[in-house]
């Protein structure tokens, strides 16, 4: 049975789409047949981050409305056989994501995929609630910063109360913390919440720490999920997070400030 993962945060700009792209690609690299769905109706961006913006013909809303079938709308990734992108619509009708329509599409996707990654919009409105409703697992993307932590706490509360699993009284959504834009240097200076602080406040298990990295912007510039950049700290941190999600044990990296050699400082990549 396919597993539905929602990537959510409450707050915008913390790295949901970057994470959705990286996690979906990472799962596909591990041989899992994966589709990543953009739930941000009206503000389509996953296609750009995945690098398939020029191949979008039909979208999520077209399929929900029966104007296209899944095979017409799904975009097969050119780098990974097992990876598909399901772009959203640019309609301004925010309520176009009807819950039973979404359920039908997800049920159909479950027939042929191992993992369905739902890239949630920011906020706690209709789109975000629909994205998390069907989730089996959630990756709560959080920056070590007060407003992001507070919003994550809110989203964790909503996952526990408003998801389908909660409504049906089933086992709760498996919630994971992914701390992004982490700067071990600033933490060491006492300028940034530590990973332990955030974990203590949110009290959910830690899936990974993604260090602040120039490679993230470079990746979105070129439409390549950052996990493909196995030289970059962010790419490696995402690989670790995906491995942990699949049950492997990986030591947390990038928690301590990195000692940079003069050579790396002058010529190295972040």
């Amino acid at each position: 049975m396919a597993h539905v993962i929602v990537v959510t945060s409450g707050k915008g700009g913390v790295g949901k789409t970057t994470t959705s792209a990286a996690v979906a690609a990472g799962l596909a690299m591990k041989g899992k047949k994966t589709v990543v769905i953009d739930f941000d109706v009206g503000l389509r961006n996953l296609d750009l981050v995945m690098g398939c913006e020029r191949r979008v013909v039909f979208d999520f809303i077209n399929v929900i409305n029966g104007d296209a079938n899944l095979n017409q709308a799904l975009i097969r990734d050119k780098r990974l056989d097992q990876l598909y992108v399901f772009p959203t619509s640019q309609t301004r009708d925010k309520d176009a994501l009807k819950r039973n329509g979404v359920e039908k599409v997800l049920d159909e996707l479950k027939q042929s995929f191992d993992y369905i990654v739902c890239d949630s919009p920011a906020g706690i409105e209709h789109g975000a609630l629909t994205a998390l409703y069907f989730a089996d697992s959630a990756i709560v993307v959080t920056n070590p910063e007060v407003s992001s932590v507070r919003d994550s706490d809110r989203i964790i509360g909503i996952l526990a109360a408003k998801s389908r699993r909660a409504e049906r009284g089933e086992a709760p959504v498996n919630v994971h913390l992914l701390l992004t834009r982490y700067s071990a240097e600033r933490v060491a200076k006492g300028e940034m919440l530590t990973v332990e602080d955030v974990q203590e406040i949110l009290s959910i298990p830690l899936l990974g720490i993604i260090p602040e990295s120039e490679s993230v912007l470079r990746a979105s510039n070129t439409g390549t999920p950052v996990i493909f950049d196995d030289q970059s700290p962010a790419g490696r941190a995402y690989s670790d997070a995906v491995a942990r999600f699949l049950g492997e044990t990986r030591e947390m990296r990038f928690v301590k400030p990195e000692r940079r050699s003069l050579f790396r400082t002058l010529f190295g990549r972040a």
Binding site: V146, V149, D153, R154, G157, G190, E191, M192, L193, I201
Partner: peptide, 21 residues
């Protein structure tokens, strides 16, 4: 001052979240 700001953040968060939860 720098030393303090992260711990201030933590304290403030714990207080506000206890109330909101």
């Amino acid at each position: 001052r720098r030393q303090a700001s992260a711990s201030i953040a933590k304290e403030r968060l714990q207080l506000v979240l206890a109330h909101e939860r």
